[in-house]
Simulated assay, not measured.
Amino acid sequence: MSWSIILGAFWVLASTVVAMLPMRRQYVPGVALLILAPVLIFSIGYEHGVLPGLLALGAFVSMFRNPLRYLWRKATRREQEPAE
């Protein structure tokens, strides 16, 4: 088994643990996971091909959809919509 898959499994476990933390304690480890994810996704795509890389990217976007929406709106300077 390759290192990228093993690190990916640890990343998933770490994100699960972070999700179980109280909201005020999720920010620092959540940002660290958010920053580490593109490197890991690129590594998976490089070692195993485009399809596994795209699947990893889809899983990442699915898990971090709300923070990514927030960052996208902030980057494009759109008005913040109320949370649903």
Rank of each mutant, 00 (worst) to 15 (best):
M1V: 11
M1Y: 07
M1P: 10
W3N: 13
S4P: 02
S4Q: 09
S4K: 00
I5G: 05
I6G: 05
I6S: 09
L7I: 08
G8P: 05
G8N: 08
A9F: 12
F10N: 10
W11S: 03
V12D: 04
A14E: 10
A14L: 12
A14K: 05
S15I: 05
S15W: 09
S15K: 03
S15V: 06
T16I: 15
T16Y: 10
V17G: 07
V18Q: 07
V18F: 03
V18I: 07
M20W: 11
M20H: 08
L21F: 08
P22F: 02
M23W: 10
R24D: 15
R24L: 11
R25P: 11
R25M: 14
Q26M: 08
Y27A: 14
Y27E: 09
P29S: 03
P29R: 01
P29A: 02
G30S: 04
G30L: 00
G30A: 02
G30W: 00
G30M: 01
V31S: 07
V31I: 13
V31T: 11
A32N: 03
A32P: 05
L33M: 04
L33T: 00
L33P: 06
L33Y: 01
L33A: 03
L34V: 03
L34C: 07
L36M: 11
L36F: 13
A37E: 04
A37K: 01
P38I: 00
P38Q: 01
P38N: 01
P38Y: 00
V39Q: 07
V39Y: 12
V39D: 07
L40R: 01
L40D: 05
I41S: 02
I41D: 02
I41R: 01
F42I: 13
F42W: 14
F42A: 14
I44R: 01
I44F: 04
G45C: 02
G45P: 01
G45S: 02
Y46E: 09
Y46H: 14
E47L: 03
H48W: 12
G49N: 03
V50G: 04
L51H: 06
L51F: 13
L51D: 09
P52R: 03
G53C: 03
G53P: 01
L54I: 11
L54T: 05
A56Y: 01
L57S: 13
G58P: 04
A59I: 05
A59Y: 05
A59V: 07
A59D: 01
F60M: 02
F60C: 04
V61S: 07
S62C: 11
S62G: 13
M63H: 13
M63V: 10
M63Q: 12
M63D: 09
R65C: 11
P67R: 00
L68T: 00
R69G: 08
R69K: 13
R69W: 14
R69Q: 14
R69A: 14
Y70G: 08
Y70K: 08
L71A: 15
L71W: 13
L71E: 06
W72R: 12
R73C: 10
R73Y: 11
R73I: 04
A75G: 15
T76K: 08
T76W: 07
R77S: 10
R78G: 09
R78Q: 15
Q80D: 13
Q80L: 14
Q80P: 05
E81D: 10
E81A: 14
P82H: 04
P82A: 05
A83E: 15
E84A: 12
